[in-house]
Lab assay of single mutants.
Amino acid sequence: MAAGGDHGSPDSYRSPLASRYASPEMCFVFSDRYKFRTWRQLWLWLAEAEQTLGLPITDEQIQEMKSNLENIDFKMAAEEEKRLRHDVMAHVHTFGHCCPKAAGIIHLGATSCYVGDNTDLIILRNALDLLLPKLARVISRLADFAKERASLPTLGFTHFQPAQLTTVGKRCCLWIQDLCMDLQNLKRVRDDLRFRGVKGTTGTQASFLQLFEGDDHKVEQLDKMVTEKAGFKRAFIITGQTYTRKVDIEVLSVLASLGASVHKICTDIRLLANLKEMEEPFEKQQIGSSAMPYKRNPMRSERCCSLARHLMTLVMDPLQTASVQWFERTLDDSANRRICLAEAFLTADTILNTLQNISEGLVVYPKVIERRIRQELPFMATENIIMAMVKAGGSRQDCHEKIRVLSQQAASVVKQEGGDNDLIERIQVDAYFSPIHSQLDHLLDPSSFTGRASQQVQRFLEEEVYPLLKPYESVMKVKAELCL
């Protein structure tokens, strides 16, 4: 049975990233139509530049190519590739079939990587351009969430054990800070992308030097003109047959890092959902379990974690691919890159769409948070109580021993009897502590235990987050809708 299948058929496997999760716009960027249309555009740009620099290419040939950029006979191309065992030459023939007058000058002087690699770089750039505003929107939604809850005390956790208090907004800023680093890295790697350009079979530009009869300047002009037509500021000066596969490492490393950030955020949300302090959106008709109707599973956060793990592992592909590119190139890269580049971007696209949807509907339960604080705060307040007693004339050592005994009794009630923490009640009825009984409410005010959390939130948002989001103001209103 021949390899390949009808990918629109229910009898043929289709990647869930495309069929179930990723956005239509990201799927289109990695589609065959987008790819092969870009090949034709690159052939047109090459012909236009070659004509401008004096090669015998007519206006009629150029116009014929322009008129057929979208006229792609995919069936013919597939048949040609089956016959020739070469995808680029299959599309040269297919393009030439609908451009008979231009057929002889299509791909003039070029090698397969002229269309293959340059198209990949265009796709990487455009895919990054799709991700950047999506990530900015996630940051914006979380920034709104953090600002609104900047002063809401909550129990902090280290080692997932109760620690000092923080605020809900401050905790959210930990998430935002990681995503801001990801946004900066995505922008950097996007701006650092260079075009492969017009380089020939081993990167020496020998074929173009021959076409222009040894004119170095025209060869350099050709490279520059096509690079500018493709919208790049610069091209690699040095290439082998391909652009260095280190570029793929750079791009997928940034995406993998984004995956790590999203995994951490969504894990926190899942843990908070278990504590009943916070939940992701839950639709009115949504079913959490087929057997347990009360369940409210954090399905979206779980999906993000599941896909983020996949995204983090994909960076190993370009690392290994770059390491086995012998001399000017081997074909070890080809099949692998067809999979890992598309999957990385479709996965990143999915987790950003999902995280935006989550961040637009996060639900906080202040009463649950308050109750958990009441359970733990008495123990945390013991040092403040000791200091207040010393100020009232008591002995630190005597007070410490009193607190120690009462704390152990209260802990026994919590752990052995399943009761509430009654340390404060014990202190309130103990005559030894009568000098500070009137101060206990103040000493137990949760806001006095959150330090500068709310001020940190305000400063972080104003100095770091809002300036970073400013270039994306025009796209901030787009909502994230999930079908599944």
Rank of each mutant, 00 (worst) to 15 (best):
G5T: 14
G5L: 07
G8L: 15
G8N: 15
Y13P: 12
A18N: 13
S19T: 00
R20D: 00
R20F: 00
A22I: 11
E25T: 12
E25K: 12
D32V: 13
Y34S: 12
T38R: 04
Q41Y: 12
L42V: 15
L42W: 00
W43H: 13
E48Y: 04
T52H: 13
T52K: 11
L53I: 14
G54M: 08
P56V: 11
D59K: 10
K66R: 08
S67M: 12
N68L: 05
N68M: 09
D73N: 10
D73G: 09
F74C: 14
A78C: 13
A78K: 08
R83V: 09
L84N: 09
R85L: 10
R85K: 13
D87G: 02
D87H: 05
H91G: 10
H91M: 11
V92L: 07
T94R: 08
T94P: 01
H97E: 09
C98V: 11
C99I: 09
K101L: 15
L108S: 14
G109E: 01
C113G: 15
V115K: 02
D120I: 06
R125K: 14
N126L: 05
L128V: 10
L131E: 14
R137W: 06
R137D: 07
V138P: 04
R141I: 10
R141S: 15
R141K: 15
D144H: 13
E148K: 09
R149P: 01
L152G: 03
G156M: 01
G156R: 01
T158R: 00
H159T: 02
L165D: 01
T166L: 09
T167R: 01
V168L: 09
V168K: 02
G169M: 03
C172H: 05
L174H: 13
L174P: 15
Q177C: 10
D178Q: 07
L179W: 05
L179P: 02
M181S: 12
L183T: 13
Q184C: 08
N185W: 11
N185R: 10
L186G: 12
R188M: 07
R188V: 06
D191C: 09
D192Y: 10
F195D: 02
R196V: 11
R196W: 02
R196A: 13
G197D: 03
G203Q: 01
Q205I: 04
S207T: 14
S207A: 13
F208I: 11
L209V: 12
Q210T: 14
G214S: 12
G214T: 09
E220I: 11
L222H: 00
D223M: 06
K224G: 11
K224F: 13
K229S: 13
K229N: 04
G231T: 08
T239N: 03
E250N: 09
E250L: 11
A256K: 00
S257I: 07
S257W: 06
G259A: 15
A273F: 14
K276F: 07
K276H: 06
K276M: 06
F282M: 02
Q286I: 03
Q286A: 03
G288W: 02
K295L: 01
R296M: 15
R296P: 03
R296D: 03
N297G: 01
N297D: 02
P298A: 12
E302C: 02
E302G: 01
R303G: 02
C304P: 00
C304M: 13
S306H: 00
S306L: 01
A308F: 03
H310K: 11
M312S: 03
T313R: 04
T313E: 03
L314F: 13
L314H: 15
Q320D: 01
T321W: 03
S323T: 04
R329D: 00
S334H: 05
S334A: 06
A335M: 07
N336W: 02
N336I: 12
I339M: 10
I339E: 02
L341D: 14
E343L: 04
F345S: 10
I351D: 03
I351T: 14
L352M: 12
L352D: 03
N357D: 09
S359R: 14
E360R: 03
L362T: 09
V368F: 03
E370M: 14
A381T: 14
A381W: 04
A381R: 04
T382H: 02
T382M: 11
E383G: 02
I386Y: 04
V390S: 09
G393M: 04
G394I: 06
C399L: 06
C399R: 02
E401W: 12
K402E: 05
R404C: 11
V405M: 13
Q409E: 09
A411Y: 05
V413T: 13
K415Q: 06
N421Y: 06
L423K: 03
I424M: 14
R426L: 08
V429F: 13
Y432K: 06
Y432L: 07
F433S: 05
S434H: 08
S438M: 12
D441Q: 15
D441G: 12
L443E: 04
S447A: 12
S448D: 12
S448M: 14
G451T: 02
G451Y: 01
R452S: 13
A453V: 06
S454L: 09
V457T: 10
R459Q: 14
F460P: 00
E462F: 13
E464V: 06
E464H: 05
Y466T: 13
L468Y: 12
L469M: 11
Y472K: 06
E473D: 15
K477H: 08
